[in-house]
């Protein structure tokens, strides 16, 4: 049964680690069922923001509301999944058990139903043959797909992706992009995707945000982003390579 997708509201969120401010006055809304892509250079604070949204960390100031509820109130009421950049699969369990862990621990279905559900999810991502392999036996792309599959088994209402296409070849990146786009139709999920991958963002996003130095620089549709005349956006979306005038020398 399809669950309702949820909205996310981020209101004036600040976060610092010691003296270093990582998030500065971050505010945006994500509508139910929307695919929202957060882009930005490394160290911009994108992954920290994801951790704050799912409740693995908490903001110093500001509010994060999921379906109108504070993140901590929403736990147990809203099912949220996170696809980690590293995969974060449990190395002591094989792929099948990694996927079956959530429904087993929460006693959602009978053993037979769990088996059917896990195998169906694995087949969605062409991973049937990997069911009894351990994470150490998988390639980077397979680990990432298993991580997505593990999040899908949870039937999340909000799915967060942290760099889902990093370290993947272009074909695998396209496959992941297709998975993200089709999931919206299949399981009615709100998605927030953190990525450097411009082609992924342009292919799947309803809206794109650019983060820079812990701040939201711009939020717009992919088309407008591509047509933007803003220097920072243009530099990020289409970085020209000029060996005669390298950026690192200009900065220094």
């Amino acid at each position: 049964m399809k669950k309702d997708a949820v909205s996310v509201e981020i209101k004036n969120v600040y976060k610092s680690f010691g003296q270093q401010e990582v998030l500065h006055d971050i505010s945006f809304d994500v509508a139910p069922g929307e695919i929202f892509v957060l882009m930005g250079p490394s160290g911009a604070g994108k992954s920290v923001l994801l951790k704050n949204i799912i409740g693995l960390d908490w903001p110093d100031k500001g509010k994060i509301l999921v379906n109108g509820l504070d993140v901590y109130e929403s736990q147990g009421k809203v099912v949220m999944g996170l696809v980690f950049q590293s995969g974060a699969l449990l190395n002591s369990l094989d792929v099948f058990d990694n996927l079956a862990l959530y429904p087993k621990e929460h006693r959602l279905y009978s053993d037979a139903d769990i088996r059917a559900k896990v195998m169906h999810t694995l087949s969605m991502l062409s991973l049937e043959d990997a069911a009894h392999k351990y994470p150490s036996e998988l390639s980077g792309g397979m680990r990432k797909r298993v991580s997505i599959a593990r999040a899908l088994v949870m039937e999340p209402q909000l799915l967060l992706y942290d760099e889902p296409t990093s370290e993947l070849d272009p074909v695998m990146s396209a496959t992941i992009a297709e998975v993200i786009a089709t999931l919206k139709e299949e399981i009615n999920v709100t998605s927030i995707v953190v990525s450097h991958d411009r082609s992924l963002a342009m292919a799947v996003a309803n809206r794109v945000a650019l983060m820079h130095n812990g701040r939201i620089h711009a939020i717009d549709t992919p088309k407008r982003f591509l047509a933007s005349k803003d220097d920072l956006i243009r530099d990020f979306m289409d970085p020209s390579i000029d060996p005669k005038h390298p950026r690192f020398r200009e900065k220094s």
Binding site: K51, L56, F84, N91, L101, E105, M154
Partner: peptide, 21 residues
């Protein structure tokens, strides 16, 4: 190693208590 490689974080996102498991 489970903590460093985010396996514990993964359990928390699945609402599974590391203490229980």
């Amino acid at each position: 190693s489970m903590t460093v490689y985010q396996e514990i974080d993964a359990l928390k996102t699945m609402n599974i208590s590391p203490e229980r498991l």
